[in-house]
Design a protein around this nucleic acid. Sequence first.
DNA 1: GGCTTGACTTGGACAAAGTCCAGGATAGGA
DNA 2: TCCTATCCTGGACTTTGTCCAAGTCAAGCC
Lengths: 138, 138
Amino acid sequence: MSDLLERLRGRGWRMTAQRRVVAEVLAGDHVHLTADEVHARAVAKLPEISRATVYNTLGELVSLGEVLEVSTDKRAKRYDPNAHRPHHHLVCAQCGAIRDVHPTGNPMADLPDSERFGFTVSDVEVTYRGVCPNCAKA
Amino acid sequence: MSDLLERLRGRGWRMTAQRRVVAEVLAGDHVHLTADEVHARAVAKLPEISRATVYNTLGELVSLGEVLEVSTDKRAKRYDPNAHRPHHHLVCAQCGAIRDVHPTGNPMADLPDSERFGFTVSDVEVTYRGVCPNCAKA
DNA sequence: GGCTTGACTTGGACAAAGTCCAGGATAGGA
DNA sequence: TCCTATCCTGGACTTTGTCCAAGTCAAGCC
Ligand SMILES: [Mn+2]
Ligand SMILES: [Mn+2]
Ligand SMILES: [Zn+2]
Ligand SMILES: [Zn+2]
């Protein structure tokens, strides 16, 4: 994602080897890694990178809106580089595989006023759960 | 929830003071406590109850289907006694307040086959986020 | 009511996920 | 090239949750 790096430079980020590596690790589709998974892959490219830096960098990417934090998993937060196209998630209950999905319809419109308890609702998150083809045949 | 206690007795549960207290703490509507919150409230009624027992009891209640585990929070799991009526959640992004909601429509039907990647989808979880009236006026 | 026993509870050790900080390194402008 | 604010590091610490050996007790039986 060199366009990501471009945007970050534009925001006044110092381009360090560590940040470049974290950005590289997050490239791709359907990527939803935990912080420790990001760290493991980053270490493969830059052995001396620390856990603290990975956490810091992920936190910064999230507050810049360049990466989403998703919690489909009940254990660790996952980091999702697909922040610019709204989407939801389909999760395998057995192996944890995660796919990005784009349901039709607008769930926001499905919450009647009487069910809003005076809240100003701004966001909806939908998580589908099931069994992936791989786990189904095993 | 003495009907809960009834059901548990029927399932061969030993009725201990600890389990009674955990069940009491979970009584009510819109209850979504973390394990440690349950423990804190349980201790107020039964000072010598241990954290391990609270975790054990909550785990058992979940596997019996009497309590749901929800992860609206990115930190700790929350325990929801409203297991017998399907519902979704509305969460205040500021104070974390959680309300049970019942949207109209069927989000399951909104996921086209082409977006299922061969998964057998069995469950949908919808989380609305916003700001509660309390936080809005502050 | 008293015994017996397997289920239950306890406290503490351990693990996983995440935060924080003092001190050292460095990107990038002057 | 030099300077310095920003960034990185390793390790200590916190939070959330799991596990276990040893002690306790609910409930069935007499
Ligand atoms: Mn995604
Ligand atoms: Mn609920
Ligand atoms: Zn799977
Ligand atoms: Zn609020």
